[in-house]
Design a protein around this nucleic acid. Sequence first.
RNA 1: GGGAGCUUAGCUCAGCUGGUUCAGAGCAUCUGCCUUACAAGCAGAGGGUCACUGGUUCGAACCCAGUAGCUCCCA
Length: 898
Amino acid sequence: MSIAKTYIPKETEEKWYSYWLQHGFFKSVPDEREPYTIVIPPPNVTGVLHMGHMLNNTIQDVLVRRARMKGKNACWVPGTDHASIATEAKVVAMLKERGISKKDLTREEFLTYAWEWKEKYGGIILEQLKKLGASCDWDRTKFTMDESLSEAVIDTFIHLYKKGLIYRGIRMINWDPQGKTAVSDEEVIRKEVNQKLYYIRYFVQSESPEVGKSESGEASSDFRTSGLPDSPGFLTIATTRPETIMADAAICINPNDERYLHLHGKKVYIPLINREIPVILDDYVTMDFGTGCLKVTPAHDLNDYELGQRHNLPVIDILNDDGTLNEKAQILVGEDRFAARKKIAVLLEEAGVLEKVEEYKSQVGFSERTNAVIEPKLSMQWFCKMGEMAKPALDYVLNGEIKLIPEKFVNTYRHWMENVRDWNISRQLWWGQQIPAWYLPTGEFVIAKNAEEALKEAQLKNPEYTAANLTQDEDVVDTWFSSWLWPISVFDGFKDPDNADINYYYPTNDLVTAPEILFFWVARMIMAGHEFRGEVPFRNVYLTGIVRDKQGRKMSKQLGNSPDPLDLIAQYGADGVRVGMLLCSPAGNDLMFDESYCKQGSGFANKIWNAFKLVKGWEVDESLSNPNGVAIEWFANRFNQALTEIEANFAQYRLSEALMDTYKLVWDDFCAWYLEMIKPAYQHPIDKATYAATIQFFENILKVLHPFMPFLTEELWHDELFGERSETDCCIVAQLPAIGEINSRLLNETELVKDVVTNIRNTRKTKQISDKEPLELFVKSNSGINYGQFEAIITRLANISKFESVADKIEGAINFLASTDEFYIPFSEEIDPVAECVKLKKEQEYLLGFLKSVNAKLGNERFMANAKPEIIEVEQKKKADAEAKLTIIEENLAALAC
RNA sequence: GGGAGCUUAGCUCAGCUGGUUCAGAGCAUCUGCCUUACAAGCAGAGGGUCACUGGUUCGAACCCAGUAGCUCCCA
């Protein structure tokens, strides 16, 4: 392999990805090894790769690759989600462009188009993930509408229905008039919106509805008084939705409201249409909000609906599914609800019943998918009872069988699960699994796996029934109703609950996903896991943050503040981007992404490349003896120490910390210290032992780096430097080095040696001595450390021409302390005694202060009584060290006679 | 309105059971170096009242209470 000056990712990435594929390294089949399983959070078929996916899948790939390198049978199952609302919207839009309207199509025709669309665009994200290096077992790729997965959805629907956990009921749902579907509460985004509060007068029965009769013309600006009975002919209500007055079923007042006693038992007329409605009493009404008179519109407000139920009020629905007014409104029929609002305001004004309009801020729900204002709507829907299933799902998390990372999400999870509401699983769409309910002419229904079975069921009720008597429910189930089965259904665990795959891979190990769908998806998977397998679906849930831009804004297409991940990969290399993502991604916290992190990542790749270039350039002279024994031993120990730290961080899912440990191990310890320690002089050969040790180190470093930087490491792995490799001897399947013993004494002493080197470099800097000018160095070792063993290292790194141990201080030399050991550099120039005195006195002062605080602790009876013995020991050591240093400083001060 | 969380260097974040010479890391900044692996580099340096106020403790970035600011979830 010829070595380029810099690392060029493009030349390696495609090559190795296809090599891995060819050799089936991503593939997993059950065997004797311990499994390690991740199921991918299936991306929507409508999506393209965004930064959230990049983060999420980088993390999963790091975990999977590491597991593989720890000898586990790693299986990462990829797939996609059919995303009924979003996909149907895309297909409808596509058809519209072709001049086709969904209304003109049969269900079957529409679905043909939808599948066509899915085949064409549905796999885009998965293809893009390959660019990132994702080591998924692609042979296992699943789609939530695959036959077996869909069958599982239908089967579980039937199972839950039979168990009484699925029921049909009228509910107030969040209706998206643009998507023409119900959406769940979680898909409604609430925003504070400036609205208008309309004050409208309703005339009271037996009072003449003569316009302007009681008009004072000076309605009070205080709405608390504006509806007062000093205007006996009418009452005033305040509403943000004047277009719904035609759907009013009553006016409600608080029975304790003394202002309105005269209205008890009365009837009033709805303006414009003059329909008569009763005044009802309910203490639900807050007396001091608005006018104290509440218009009750059961069809268009959840609270009003419940109020209506209590008072047996009729439900008058004046809206069509597309948000326009229907004939029940009597006026403005066919107008859109917002147009109608403006028009009715004018009509009310003209009729003289619009008392005033105020600005008003309130929360309005918007559809996450279409951004349309959500319309509360009564509808017959299928529901799944949650209470019973939530309990065990909560327990799994509370008792630690499932760990949420970071732990803070346990609180959120508990709060949700303790206040869980039934799950509306109907969606008024075609793309998805059609609800397996067939309606009979009597209005009854049967639940069955297919039309034939449904007919059989129906014939039990009435043998006369034929297929023509049955109509299947038009709706499909919520997409989450299929994705909650994902960890089971990808292994075909419903149809074949005892198959080899599910028995081996389930429960899966880690799930990596966003906190936004903790309830939507994670909680429901746990419920499904318990319900259908009596077991958790995964052990650990790693919750990633939201990727934001530098200004803290969520990255989104609308804002255009998200870089294109593929552009980033092209620019920085997949390895660079992976490192960049992880550098700024603490678990569960949002990350402020900036391209500079990727730059740092590619810089790191380049650093490794160049270190490799150095080692590769060495000539070996077999006759040389090894002068680097200590350096080699030090790095071997340092490597083991770093492995321990990395392992600990992985165990706690602190991936960005583990990466930083690796980064520093490679850059600082290996490149900046070790290689500099052993590097032969230019065009000089290296001895065989050092060469062999260094190559071994390098190979181990590649292994540790591989999960983070798979492409670069695989590329270097195959260099001839490491000798002949068989076709399947690849970094991706190499086993991580075992952690060896750590000689902490050697590590500590080497830290001191590094301190000595830094001190000398510093001295050169302050005294303006060139790096090229050799210096002499003498040590008076008070600690007993044998610096002789480090001679080669110190002379090398600090350009020392002579290094000797001495028993006495050296007068007139530059000196410094490393721990309690004294170092001297004789220097021709006179040492400035005054400056030296100042320096020493400053140090002395600091040490005295420090010693004082230590002594204060040691002299404190309560400290001695309460502190743990090891703490006291540490304090005593601090004291001894400080005293030793002080003695040396005092001696030096005395010598200078200051 | 109810709940959860956050605030440590210019930026992004560590700091685990309160106790090392504990105030850290990376990036950025500044200074000096084109020293034959790397200027995408090397060597060195500066930078913080741990949001604020009080309390507990022998001892607080860490525990408790309050205040301010920010974020998220639910209504």
